[in-house]
Nucleic acid binder design. Structure first.
Lengths: 337, 337
DNA sequence: GTGAAAGCGCTAACAT
DNA sequence: ATGTTAGCGCTTTCAC
């Protein structure tokens, strides 16, 4: 009953070989003789030895883990991206360190910290609001963006946000709507801006009116969707259709208007963005733009691993296709309005 | 323009002191003379030096990170616990490694792996289905359970699951329901079992009938709630009230029955469990049992850090209070049924 | 208050 | 095929 953890020395002693042989047996078993290998493995079993990752990493000048920096873990949107990341990182024997830019003081500072502390072999950025100064840090590990980031040429995996907005507007137009509004994401957020821009240009190219009072500012949250609903209810002249920059906001909106006695889609048509799991279970089920989040994670992880292995700081960016999902929350506008 | 990362040696040379002094300046600044300290800090700034965490950890025989083992990251339920954990771990300068037992082969094996690989100073377990053999591993780091685990006396942070179920049943009884059913979590899951047990004993103690065909097996997911709805719709003799072991299942159920033309709560009263964010935005808003998930994370992290710092493998368990949240998804049963 | 020196546990040349 | 040896970059006695 050993209370101490065995080191490679202990194994070597028990097996009657050198530490180098033990190390080799564990990393490239084919290069040691079968008999030796067996002796070593027995000794490993007997002592309960396990490689000390810290020592190994120090020696090999790597860390075996990847840091994922995101704005807010509690946001379920990121959870699926994390699942995608994990499905690649884990089999590749990389640990996944999660850092929430919210739970520290200065987010930019933390980015720099992780980039320089040598705690990870690579970094995945899910927070599009960080400053690009990081790129200049000498000796920094490879970075992959899994969202848009203005004015940076980091390798990234992203989604056709503008086209998603255009799909939503196109759908409304096809149904006969002419008064269509938009509930945006937070100002300054790159995703929000792309969707807003896509919304604007789609309206213009379809010859539909672009009214500023029909563009409501949200922040992707359900609460902000509920707030938008109250604003909509208070309007004199309401749009008959509304495109939301996130499903969450659409859900918040729907809850409020339904409780106020309005019906979706008969009184308002709505389209969301993301296709979060829940929206197919609502009544009506939400028409939305699907972003394959697991896929985003998978691609980002693959890209990063390739960069780590080849030792490059650049790589091909990846554009992931979105998909329009027609469900029950949009129909032709009410007549006589 | 340095392309290399500076080591403590570089700083020592630039500052004209020994590496020991540099190290001291950075860890206990008060023991070095003010003048020396300044020289060192200048050298640090000049070289862009940052402590190499791996080397530091090897020397100090610690890792500076904590592993969180959970069944499925994509489940938003865990996301909030993670946020709570992060809010404590980050300021305490601990990294948070997330491991998903789904993305590897054998979950138990992975637990053992993390326990023995020396990759973390402590471990937080969110997966109640792992085998308790882990406890016997010599030299293992401290573990905190943030959920129930049968027959283990690990320090834990948990929630009054049974009482939650009893609250739900009590509420139904008070509204006049006599036919109440339950949609369970996955068989074998400890949370699911506790809630089921709480449900059963509450029925009994209130003198309500316990019917096996009114206990539907689910797995916490929305899809399984939808499946339960179909089962309910197909019943000859339906319960007028249903307690769900998770909010997600309640949401899935509600979507299906509403689209089938039934109304909640007029046709069925339902109560969920968890109080996930969305349920207040549904119509009707869901009556449920609130579990303070962020709080669970915070307490678990605090407990673990205390154990790490004091070097103990035991600690006080913590029971977190739940709260009944009455909203609009339960009302008296329809008359004449 | 500061420096010299000894490792933490491991891996990878280099020898044999 | 195996052993010897020299560190990876840091912290921490132990002297001074």
């Amino acid at each position: 009953m050993d209370k101490k953890i065995a080191t490679i020395q202990d194994v070597a002693r028990v097996a009657g070989v050198s530490t180098a042989t033990v190390s080799r047996t564990l990393s490239k078993p084919t290069v040691v003789a079968a008999a030796t290998r067996e002796a070593v493995l027995n000794a490993v079993a007997e002592t309960g030895y396990r490689i000390n990752a810290t020592a190994s990493n120090l020696r090999r000048q790597r860390t075996g883990s990847v840091i994922v920096l995101l704005p807010n873990i509690a946001n379920p949107f990121f959870a699926q991206i994390l699942a995608g990341l994990s499905s690649i990182l884990t089999p590749a024997k990389y640990g996944m360190l999660i850092a929430d830019t919210q739970s520290g003081p200065d987010p930019d500072e933390r980015l720099v910290h992780y980039l320089t502390s040598g705690q990870a072999d690579g970094l995945i950025l899910l927070d599009g609001s960080l400053s690009p100064d990081a790129l200049k840090i000498p000796g920094r590990p490879p970075i992959v963006m899994a969202c848009e980031w203005m004015g940076s040429d980091l390798p990234s995996v992203r989604v056709e946000n503008g086209r998603g907005a255009a799909m939503a507007v196109g759908h409304f137009a096809q149904l006969g709507h002419r008064s269509v509004g938009h509930v945006t994401g937070p100002r300054g957020n790159v995703l929000a801006e792309s969707r807003l821009e896509g919304f604007r240009s789609a309206l213009t190219s379809l010859g539909l009116p672009l009214r500023h009072d029909w563009i409501l500012e949200g922040d992707f949250s359900m609460d902000s969707g509920a707030a938008a609903a109250n604003a909509w209810l208070a309007m004199e002249d309401r749009p008959t259709a509304l495109f939301f920059a996130s499903d969450e906001m659409a859900v918040g909106f729907m809850g409020v208007v339904q409780r106020a006695g309005y019906s979706v889609p008969e009184d308002v048509s709505i389209v969301g963005f993301d296709n979060i799991e829940i929206v197919q279970h609502l009544s009506p089920a939400l028409t939305t733009i699907r972003q394959p989040r697991t896929q985003i994670g998978i691609r980002a992880a693959e890209l990063l691993l390739r960069m780590i292995e080849t030792g490059t700081l650049t790589g091909p960016s990846d554009l992931i296709e979105i998909e329009f999902i027609r469900r029950g929350s949009a129909c032709p506008p009410p007549v006589g309005e």
